[in-house]
């Protein structure tokens, strides 16, 4: 058994170099998230609030192209609610019989529409900077959801002696500290129907939770399946150990 543990230790010793480069430059504090842990799940109410934040603030510039209206079912939306939600958006479809593109109300199967017609239009409207798609944002940055949260909360006055280029904004955690996006999240920029606190920290947290749901929609299935698989594997390993010991009982080794 000891040797097996040693083997496991060796496995992690070999694996660490890749993880080591995470800790350079800015230190990003860890936050508490409902989706962390052995059986972490998304806080439905929080993620729904986060969607409201996305809709009212982020979606002016940022697309969420890998999320479709139908996906909101896992957030606790009914089929009717999803239809109503989708119908608030217009998408381009076509060509029709006359060969023209036309606008129609979005359907459940449609992805969330882009705020801009294309990347060039997005750049033109944002001083040359392309607002990235947010579907995978919490997985596409070192630090994950913690990074996204602290980025939203990281707008501070630049320290003395630090020159911020025109059109850019100082941000504590953004690599290089100069970010194109202006500060978006402050106290009471949204009002929640459920009366949840809407100070900047809570809003940032809610929208980050929503973005993590958007990036990793199968997280809950992953955790619950994982636990069952792990229990099974542990039982199997235990039985295999007993069987091995039994079979080897009379072999001196």
């Amino acid at each position: 058994m000891k040797k097996v543990l040693l083997a496991a230790a060796a496995v992690f010793a070999l694996a660490t170099p890749a993880a080591l480069n995470a800790a350079e430059e800015v230190h990003i504090p860890k936050e508490e998230w409902s989706f962390n842990g052995l059986l972490g799940t998304f806080d439905r109410a929080q993620v729904q609030r986060g969607f409201q934040v996305y809709k009212e603030i982020c979606s002016a510039c940022h697309s969420l192209k890998y999320v479709s209206f139908r996906n909101f079912e896992t957030l606790g939306y009914s089929e009717g609610q999803i239809k109503t939600l989708a119908a608030q958006y217009e998408v381009e479809d076509g060509p029709d019989d006359a060969g023209d593109m036309f606008k129609r109300k979005a359907k459940a199967s449609d992805p969330l529409p882009h705020p801009f017609a294309n990347d060039a239009a997005a750049r033109a409207a944002n001083g040359g900077a392309l607002p990235p798609d947010l579907s995978l944002m919490t997985k596409a940055r070192e630090g994950g959801p913690d990074y996204v949260y602290h980025l939203l909360m990281g707008y501070k006055d630049a320290p003395a002696g630090f020159t911020v280029m025109p059109g850019l904004n100082y941000n504590e955690v953004f690599p290089g500290h100069q970010i194109g996006m202006a500060k978006q999240i402050s106290d009471a920029v949204v009002t929640y129907a459920d009366g949840a606190p809407n100070d900047a920290a809570h809003i940032a947290k809610d929208v980050t939770a929503f973005l993590h749901w958007a990036a990793e929609p199968k997280l809950e299935a992953r955790h619950s399946t994982g636990l069952r698989v792990l229990i099974y594997a542990l039982l199997f390993a235990g039985l295999a150990y007993l069987l091995k010991r039994r079979i080897w009982k009379d072999i001196p080794h």
Partner: peptide, 8 residues
């Protein structure tokens, strides 16, 4: 043991 392990 054998049967349980194989079955599992």
């Amino acid at each position: 043991l054998l049967h349980t392990t194989v079955a599992m």
